[in-house]
Amino acid sequence: MQGTLSVSVWRGGEAGSFQSYEVPRRGNQTVLDVVTYVQRKLDGSLSYRFACRVGMCGSCAMMVNGRPRWTCRTRVSRVASSGKLTIAPLRNLPVIKDLTVDMTDFFDKWAKAGGVFKPTATRAEDFAAIRPTDSKRRHADAGIECIGCGICYAACDVVAWKPGYLGPAALNRAWTLVNDTRDGNGAARLRAVAGDDGCLACHSQQGCQEHCPKHLNPTAAIAGLKRAVAVAALKGRL
């Protein structure tokens, strides 16, 4: 593959600006390769995150030409047909420097949404037997592969408008646990996801589902939570 890419990369904190770089094109090049080239060859002071480079760790998410993407699994050829790339830090999170954002809020909200598994059995007991075909298990399976990349959180307008909103990833996590029959924190978790900042704030516009690189559907998980919360309220269990 021949030619060069013209790449604009965000530099600085919240009040930074874009800076332009010329990066040689390569076959099968990923957006992460481009960022790495800039840091290794052009400007060593560029900050960004990655770890696994194979779509498992969830640390490399950035805004690429305005959309949140996992950069290690995004081919340049798919997103930069015009030979131009704009790479910015993930939306809806405070910028620390360049392409790194502060994920504290994002993960604190997982805890707020009751994202911690609370066992009901002790280690003295045998394994819980759960059929893979069980409908609750299927709901849990549908959301369990989340890598915590924050892409859905960046894609969600409600997160942008309502800073307290728990967001798609935390609510998706809560829904997998609501469907985990071994978990003993159901009532408290439903209360945690019920309020104005919880699942009821979602407008079902599916920005999260559209962008999730693992093809999860947080919108469907949130719809499940809405039903569970509504039923709990009607039965006086909220």
Binding site: R191, A194, G195, D196, G198, L200, K226, V229, A230, A232, A233, L234, L238
Partner: peptide, 13 residues
């Protein structure tokens, strides 16, 4: 009524 319950009732209504 708890805030969560009130907000859920508003949503339902």
């Amino acid at each position: 009524m708890s805030a969560e319950k009130l907000q859920t009732c508003l949503w339902l209504v």
